[in-house]
């Protein structure tokens, strides 16, 4: 059995997105319920939200953008950059707490106090670009974490696996020139789904060529095709790259019951993906794996998906 951390805080519910918005506080409640009802809490190392040192956010977002976001919240704007991005007064602070809580959690992994962790945070991050909020994301949580690992812990190779059903345009663009961070994403094909990037031929730029890899999946595809794509694209690439730490951008929105996409993964399909990722982390990253929540909007399905996810991390 592994020592697993779990980041959850009611403060993450305070980022309000208004009525009828899919990225709602109830998502985290559902995740928490699944894990609590399975009686896992006593077996997990529980983590809390804490504000991030702004310097880590400045490593991936321009200071202009950070201030613009802060001012928009202070000013009481309920929308930022795109109408998709609904927010409230507290959103800036909560986005800071999101990054901060994740950095605290990954620190424990690096100190060897825990093996791996699941961070159930809002707002999500993988669409956030250097200068632009997008797709419900404001600060790019996993990108900040990758930079933190490199600069604070001297990690040379970080591997990011993004299996949210949408392409993590923000994460890709932040690292596409960088051969030290390998970004892999599997998602619904950009011609059918938001945000319209992540095509097969996007493979990194300049020195970063070969360190970005995308597996776009067609609407209707599910377990079978995901397995095939992960086996042929992700695993060979990561076994060769040998990341010292793996960060998973975890999205539960590829589930067949989630109406944010046409992808049809089953609950078992999700478990299979996670098991294979853990297996790989054990072999090439000394088990160091940090899972950070991105999307996942089907409230009735989130408890079981989160429960399975954590159960696999714990290696029960």
């Amino acid at each position: 059995m592994k020592k697993t951390g779990f980041l959850h805080d009611d403060k993450y519910l305070l980022h309000e997105t208004g009525p009828y918005h899919p990225e709602c506080p109830e998502r985290l409640k559902a995740v928490y319920k699944g894990i609590k009802d399975a009686d896992f809490l006593s077996k997990l190392t529980l983590m809390e939200a804490s504000p991030a040192d702004q310097k880590w956010i400045e490593r991936i977002h321009s200071i202009k953008y950070i201030l613009r976001f802060e001012e928009a919240c202070l000013y009481g704007m309920t929308e930022f950059d795109y109408p998709d991005n609904q927010m409230c007064n507290e959103s800036y602070d909560i986005a800071m707490l999101s990054v901060g809580g994740i950095l605290d959690t990954v620190k424990l992994i690096m100190e060897g106090k825990i093996d791996n962790a699941f961070c159930s945070v809002r707002p999500p991050g993988h669409h956030a670009e250097m200068n632009k909020a997008m797709g419900f994301c404001y600060f790019n949580n996993v990108a900040a974490t990758a930079r933190y690992l490199q600069e604070e812990w001297g990690i040379k190779r970080v591997g990011i696996i993004d299996f949210d059903v949408h392409h993590g345009n923000g994460t890709q663009h932040l690292f596409e020139h960088d051969p030290t961070v390998f970004y892999y994403s599997i998602h619904e094909h950009p011609s059918f789904s938001f945000p319209g990037t992540g095509r097969e031929f996007e493979k990194g730029v300049g020195d970063g060529e070969g360190f970005t890899l995308n597996s776009p999946m067609l609407p209707g595809q599910g377990d079978r095709e995901y397995k095939k794509a992960l086996e042929s694209d992700l695993f060979p690439a990561f076994y060769e790259f040998k990341p010292e730490v793996i960060i998973a951008s975890t999205g539960f929105d590829a589930h067949i019951d989630d109406d944010m996409s046409g992808i049809a993964l089953s609950t078992e399909g999700y478990s299979w993906i996670m098991k294979r990722i853990i297996e790989m982390a054990d072999k090439c990253s000394d088990g160091k794996l940090l899972s950070v929540l991105e999307g996942g909007y089907c409230l009735p399905r989130l408890p079981e998906l989160a429960k399975n996810h954590v159960e696999i991390l714990m290696d029960k």
Partner: peptide, 26 residues
């Protein structure tokens, strides 16, 4: 220019339109 289209698809279907289903090929 949005991430959230499922409610929009349902609305158009209610208005009597047929949404082209990219899953049909599958």
């Amino acid at each position: 220019l949005t991430n959230t289209v499922a409610p929009m698809k349902r609305k158009l279907e209610k208005l009597g339109f047929e949404i082209l289903d990219p899953m049909e090929w599958y």
